[in-house]
Write a protein that binds this DNA or RNA. Structure first.
Length: 502
DNA sequence: AAAAAAT
């Protein structure tokens, strides 16, 4: 990894200040009083003075006029080049340890004991102080797949909730019900010792609106339609809302995505709660969405905001090895899945096969089952309970291979997934022959979570696929190696070995 | 085209 990192200021006359731990400790007297339940070794107060000095000097080296040392300090295996831009004069200290954040002992316990985290990942170290330091500014944050974005906003939500107030205070909006459920699970685990309550706002077949009592849970996580529905029906009060999170924010704000729903929710809340903090998180922000996100964040409130972006050429994960496989026809693609992926993939972990349409998902599923393979398939036309069951089985490791539409392209987090197959390459719908770069990046990001190794096989059939693949390679500046022959076992074995999976 | 969800 030869990645570099920069923490820079939007305005050179108004540079972001990096304060020392001594300075920040002086402002966190409340938290040190709460940190009594923690294991000895985890307490900032117990860190030896030598160690403090060492950390202090490292953090001082973050000062932005010393770029050389910045790079050295921020170089981190799980993430690469992030550019942070802060506005206004609020000083932020990059959080080396979770203790550096002004969070409750119960939350620290959740992080260490329940989540088994040791220290903040890079995106967490940078964004958490921005999220948690008053005045609570809005944030647009881009970071690599599997780099720990969920922890950033879940911790943000949990620490902005008053556990004694039985009213919704944090709202998280996600593009799919699966992602909403996954995020709630993380929130419940991380907040295990806080007593903070949460509820899912996702479509439920057996819950008519009239039967739903007004929400008194503290955190609400859901999909845009249901949230809007509850809001309109006055079942979801916004009077105490402190923080509003958009997961997969680029998609939530995209034309042809959930733009209208998202805007409506955002404006509805800010009207009632002008100081509600808005966080936008995603691994991808294309130029159009980035511009819109910036625009709406400044529109909805006069507050200054912080932003972090990654250059598209630097978004591909180094731990993922990408391959292309030229297939003479559609049947040969099925043969590759059957004879190569399913046979060898079994040895290296779980596999997700992405297809373009619900229909091709069913077709592929059918033919693989006919050949005697055990695969499961998920797509949006399935019953909700079936979707839940299939995800649950896969997460429990009961199934090895999952066929999916782009339903699971974003956010789905399963550490054991080492193999992603693009049965079809993602295509933008309204342009001729343009690949959907963002979807491609999200799909392949289902493998190699948090720096783990992984392999991606792109099955190409015909000139159009070849052209799409070339465009993707150029766009991300990330060469995709060729598997010499779709028919040879050795070539696939070799590929998996090179990916570090065999 | 797919996604969520309301129409």
């Amino acid at each position: 990894m030869a990645d570099t990192a920069t923490v820079s200021s939007a305005d050179s006359s108004n540079q972001a200040t990096i304060s020392t731990p001594a300075a920040s400790a002086g402002t966190s007297t409340e938290s040190s009083a709460q940190q009594t339940k923690l294991p000895e070794s985890k307490r900032w107060a117990d860190v030896s003075d030598d160690e403090k000095d060492e950390i202090e000097s490292k953090i001082e080296s973050l000062a932005i006029d010393e770029p050389k040392k910045v790079n050295e300090f921020l170089e981190d295996p799980e993430s690469a080049n992030i550019e942070a831009v802060t506005s206004g004069g609020t000083p932020y200290t990059s959080a080396k340890r979770f203790e550096d954040l002004n969070i409750s002992a119960e939350l620290l316990q959740g992080l260490y004991v329940e989540m088994k985290f040791e220290r903040p990942s890079k995106i967490q170290a940078i964004t958490l102080p921005m999220i948690l330091t008053p005045p609570y500014k809005n944030l647009i944050a881009q970071a690599h797949n599997g780099s720990g974005k969920t922890t950033c906003f879940v911790l943000g939500m949990l620490s902005r909730v008053d556990p004694k107030l039985a009213a919704p205070q944090a709202l998280c909006i996600c593009p799919t019900r699966e992602l909403a459920m996954q995020n709630q699970e993380v929130l419940e685990r991380m907040g295990k010792y806080t007593g903070i309550t949460s509820i899912l706002a996702i479509p439920m077949e057996d819950m008519p609106m009239s039967k739903l009592p007004p929400v008194n849970k503290q955190v609400v996580i859901g999909t845009p339609g249901t949230i809007n529905k509850w809001f309109t029906a006055r079942k979801l009060g916004m009077n105490s809302m402190n923080i509003l999170v958009f997961d997969e924010a680029d998609h939530m704000l995209a034309e042809g995505g959930f733009k209208q729903d998202s805007e409506r929710i955002m404006k509805g809340i800010v009207k009632i709660r002008p100081n509600c903090q808005v966080l936008l998180f995603s691994a991808t922000f294309n130029d159009a969405v980035k511009a819109f996100a910036t625009k709406i964040v400044t529109e909805i409130s006069v507050k200054e905001y912080n932003q972090l972006f990654v250059k598209k050429e630097e978004l591909s994960l180094d731990s993922l090895k990408q391959y292309k496989v030229y297939c003479p026809n559609e049947l040969s693609k099925i043969m590759v899945i059957k004879d190569k992926i399913l046979e060898m993939g079994q040895k290296v972990g779980q596999t997700i096969i992405f297809v373009k349409t619900r229909n091709s998902a069913s077709m592929l599923h059918k033919s693989l089952v006919e050949y005697g393979y055990e695969v499961t398939t998920i797509q949006g036309a399935l019953q909700q309970e079936d979707r839940d069951k299939i995800v649950k089985e896969f997460k429990e490791g009961l199934t090895q291979v999952l066929i999916s539409t782009d339903l699971l392209a974003r956010g789905f987090d399963q550490a054991q997934v080492n193999l992603v197959v693009n049965y079809d390459l993602p295509l933008k719908y309204d342009t001729r022959g343009e690949p959907d770069y963002e979807v491609y990046l999200h799909r392949i990001g289902r493998a190699g979570r948090f720096g783990r190794k992984g392999a991606v096989f792109n099955l190409l059939c015909g000139d159009r696929d070849n052209m799409l693949m070339t465009k993707i390679e150029t766009h991300f500046n990330s060469p995709v190696a060729e598997v010499a022959s779709w028919e040879k076992d050795e070539d696939f074995e070799d590929a998996l070995k090179k990916a570090g999976l065999m």
